[in-house]
Design a protein around this nucleic acid. Structure first.
Length: 610
RNA sequence: GCGCCCGUAGCUCAACUGGAUAGAGCAUCCGCCUUCUAAGCGGAAGCGUGUGGGUUCAAGUCCCACCGGGCGUACCA
């Protein structure tokens, strides 16, 4: 049970007895939270101000005292104190912390419990357009989506990560046009992936579509016009184009594989627009039959509850936007495709929730989809648009271009890894210069470290942001070896492992038969408290789909670890007594396990030595 | 025009959903390597949250107005 839950259950009877309005007890319990300032204690309870009936002359500090007096006898807390306008400051007993820490050592989930009501989630993530190289724009969806998959699954939920591919759009027109007019047969036979990538870039260059610009933007362009015609023929079922499309698809999917592998993202289901395409007429027919959708000016639309149709000069309907599901020319919109996707996901996995990890600019679209899906009968499903801001370059401009070509995710990761290696070597050289002990890693070891640190840096930087605002992608900053970065956490982990290696100690004993924990120093206490907060962080991250809670937690834990490590009185291998040594080894092992586990929830790897 | 999002140290971001003196990292300055990796630790300086009102015992957080920025607004996904 996490610390917060324990504290709340301790307070509940007292609050129930004292509250004049029993219905507010859950709110009051919610007012127990970690202290904003560590000087005030470990946790604080802020309900006395709200509970005091001022009209009746009650003073919050008196209410606070009454609450404290009504708490049951326990060996969890030091005697609480009242401060300021009526805050109750809570400090956990060190003996309690010691015992609790010992308790999680044998727990493979390190104290994190499964959700009381496990749910089924479908998470829409990544969503690349195949046939194009994966670019940075897909990075956030992929990384955040993957982290949510891992976090929710760790809490015992059933999670399906579903990659909704753009495999039916204009980019295939580009490939078709390129293949028909510019292909190199020998090259295609030898390496279709490479040849298709070449053709794609070749056509874009021919059409003079600027880097980062969407092909759709280039309207009056003869090359793009030809491509669009190929797309239309494909959609109309033209035999040649369909055959070619089928031939291209494996190569297109093959382009994606290495990047997912490198990012260590495992996706459970991959279905594209082409998969849903045949279902679309049926969707429209069904909605017409159910009188959810109607014809309007030749198109098929779903009005909102007020009967408002899209783009009538009236208000648009904020909470309940109307939608178009078939265009005047008979083609379907992505709203239709997304509704088909909702139906398919609902029927296939029967999820309690569907999360869409998609950029913030599509907020209105998802509001629309969700409204129509509920109208259509999927009203018991929790729909969530887990949105995020756009990625900007260090110059605050849209991060999509770089001279010489479309910016690719792969080369970006290469850059991050390369920088990490440079920084690693610079650090090593500097330590040599000051005569510090240096571990001489082999070339292979250095490369492995750089890969883990570099890719981890990119992921960590992304996941440590909460805002839905735009996000500045600065590769130099994220590969920093100092501060709140992946490298810092990975280093803290490596130091933990280093102690066991130096002391030639087998950690197995600490996981099956943990020794007692002795808290003899503030640095040990801080570590114990941080270790016990892991479940709190995971649950909070899952509750609001915000992985950055976990990075914030990791930062606190790693920081406490560095302090402990640097505290001479807390030396592990040269501890004053065997009991202290065992106790500290247990703490160190747990810290390593929690860091590794927390990083794993974010999809970030560790190395044993760096 | 309408709608959504955002504005917090020089820079990049937090602030657990209304709680105490608004916190971190980077950059800057000072100090620490004969003991488990200095990719580390300790310290200093730096913001009162775009502006003006309002609600509240308490506002960065809620409400209103304005200023500035981004995005979206049937038939591109």
């Amino acid at each position: 049970m996490n610390l917060l839950t324990q504290l709340r259950s301790l307070f509940e009877p007292a609050l129930t007895a004292l509250a004049s309005d029993k219905a507010k007890v859950p709110d009051y319990l919610g007012a127990i939270k970690p202290s904003s300032n560590a000087d005030h204690g470990d946790y604080q309870a802020n309900m006395a101000m709200a509970m005091a009936n001022r009209a009746a002359g009650q003073k919050p500090p008196d209410v606070a005292k009454a609450i404290i007096a009504a708490l049951p006898a326990n060996d969890t807390l030091e005697p609480p104190t009242v401060a300021g306008p009526g805050f109750i400051n809570l400090r956990l007993k060190s003996e309690f912390l010691a015992k609790a820490v010992q308790g999680i050592a044998t727990n493979p989930k390190l104290g994190v419990e499964h959700a009381k009501k496990p749910r089924t989630f479908v998470i829409d993530l990544s969503g690349p357009n195949v046939a194009k190289p994966l670019h940075v724009g897909h990075l956030r969806s992929t990384i955040i989506g993957d982290a949510l998959v891992r976090i929710l699954r760790f809490l015992g939920h059933t999670v399906v990560g579903d990659n909704h591919l753009g495999d039916w759009g204009t980019q295939f027109g580009i490939l078709l046009h390129g293949y028909k007019n510019f292909r190199d047969d020998a090259a295609f036979a030898a390496d279709p992936v490479r040849e298709l990538a070449r053709l794609y870039i070749h056509i874009r260059n021919l059409a003079k579509v600027a880097d980062g610009e969407d092909e759709e933007g280039a309207t009056d362009n003869p090359v793009m016009q030809a491509c669009r015609e190929e797309t239309s023929r494909l959609h109309a079922g033209d035999a040649e184009n369909v055959t070619l499309w089928q031939m291209f698809m494996p190569a297109c999917l093959e382009m994606l594989r290495p990047i997912y592998e490198r990012l260590d993202v495992r996706i459970d289901s991959t279905l594209g627009e082409s998969f849903y395409n045949p279902m679309l007429p049926g969707i429209v027919k069904d909605m017409l039959a159910k009188q959810i959708a109607f014809e309007s000016k030749g198109a098929v639309v779903i009005p909102n509850a007020k009967g408002i149709v899209p783009q009538t000069e009236e208000e648009q309907g904020k909470e309940d936007p109307p939608a178009i599901i078939r265009k005047r020319d008979g083609a379907f919109t992505y709203t239709t495709t997304d509704l088909a996707t909702v139906k398919h996901r609902a029927e296939t996995w029967k999820p309690d929730a569907m999360l869409y990890v998609v950029g913030a600019p599509q907020a209105l679209h998802f509001k629309t989809i969700f409204a129509q899906a509920r109208r259509w009968g999927y009203d018991s499903v929790e729909f969530q648009h887990v949105q995020f801001g756009s990625m900007l370059g260090a110059d605050r401009k849209m991060f999509a271009t770089r001279k010489g070509g479309v910016i690719e995710l792969m080369s970006l990761l290469d850059d991050a890894v390369c920088l990490s290696l440079q920084k690693y070597e610079a650090n090593t050289a500097e330590r040599h210069a000051v005569g510090h002990k240096v571990w001489e890693a082999s070339t292979e070891e250095k490369n492995e470290i750089a890969e883990v640190v570099g890719v981890g840096a990119v992921k960590y930087a992304d996941l440590s942001q909460n805002r839905t605002t735009d996000y500045i992608f600065d590769i130099d900053k994220m590969t920093n070896t100092i501060g709140n970065t992946a490298a810092y956490m990975q280093y803290a982990y490596a130091r933990c492992r280093s102690i066991f290696r130096e002391g030639e100690i087998d950690e197995a004993r600490f996981r099956t038969n943990p020794p007692s924990v002795v808290i003899s120093h503030a640095a040990e206490r801080a570590l114990a408290l941080q270790l016990l907060r892991f479940p709190e962080a995971v649950e909070a991250a899952a509750a609001d789909y915000v992985p950055h809670i976990i990075t914030a937690y990791l930062w606190d834990l790693a920081k406490a670890t560095s302090v402990f490590y640097d505290t001479k009185e807390c030396h592990v291998l040269k501890a004053a007594t065997p009991e202290l040594k065992d106790s500290r080894l247990l703490l160190v092992d747990l810290v390593g396990r929690v860091i590794k586990q927390a990083l794993d929830l974010l999809g970030i790897k560790t190395v044993e030595r760096m």
